[in-house]
Amino acid sequence: MIDRAGEKIESIVPHEGPGVRINARPADGFLPDEPRGILQCENVDVYYGSFRAVTGVDLKFGLHEITALIGPSGCGKSTLLRSLNRMNDLVDGARVEGRVLFDGEDIYGSKVDAIEVRRRIGMVFQKPNPFPKSIYDNIAYGPRVTGMRVDSMDDLVEEALTKAALWGEVKDKLKQSAYSLSGGQQQRLCIARTIAVKPDVILMDEPCSALDPIATVRIEDLMHELRREYTIVIVTHNMQQAARVADRTAFFTAFADEGTGDRTGVLVEFGKTTQIFEHPTDQRTEDYISGRFG
């Protein structure tokens, strides 16, 4: 089973190949006008059964950039995010139309294995969700189930925890239950767990909404660090957070469909974060970011 998945790995992009990682952004601070998309939505619609939750999204997530998705509650940010790594496959009746391209290949293509997509495009959830296992096993779980070739699991665990800025805090209690950690530590553990399978993209759905301000700052710092190696997409309700961490920001809103009365999400505006917050071109963006949306 894993072998067959292995074949499909080859058919997407060579994973550890330097091709992906070498093209890091030249330096922090420089941001090209157009993102070099590693992940791209082309006219994406997402349905739950007959309910269209999101429509017509065209969006490019730049390599080694952090992209923030903002917008009022219920406009389909989580829905879109979950369709970027096929997590929505798990929801009965959920369906995606249009194309989501990962390095040029449609992740909903008939030959693509959703399992492999999720390994390459990891996800961190709103509520920290460590497994009911030890800290060590939480990190080792991903590499084990995906059959990664690992020389030393101990080293891999240390590396992942270090990158997630958690190693110092947990190195003496790796065998303890992950539930013994604080909420902020649990969330960093979940990030470490995602890093351990070496994905290319990390999707984060409101990763700080369950955390206190100090833990939030730590996760934000961590995201800045991770940007060197990973492409990050983050959903957030906190505009200041978007401004602090994101290179680019996409603003979504929902409109009421005249025929069905459904509230469907659309992408209103996408651009550099400074641009979105200083000179939004759309009135709805400006209204939302200065609190005129209830």
């Binding site: 505009m239 602090r244 400074t274 917050f277 400006e286 970011i289 200065s290 609190g291």
Partner: peptide, 30 residues
């Protein structure tokens, strides 16, 4: 991030006004 802080402050002002007196539109105009 001055821009976002200014925008957020405006949002907070609007929220404070409508909390205090929901029957009137907030006096801050975009």
């Amino acid at each position: 991030n001055r821009a976002v802080r200014a925008r957020v402050a405006i949002g907070r002002l609007r929220a404070a006004f409508s909390d205090a007196e929901p029957r009137h539109d907030t006096p801050i105009e975009t």
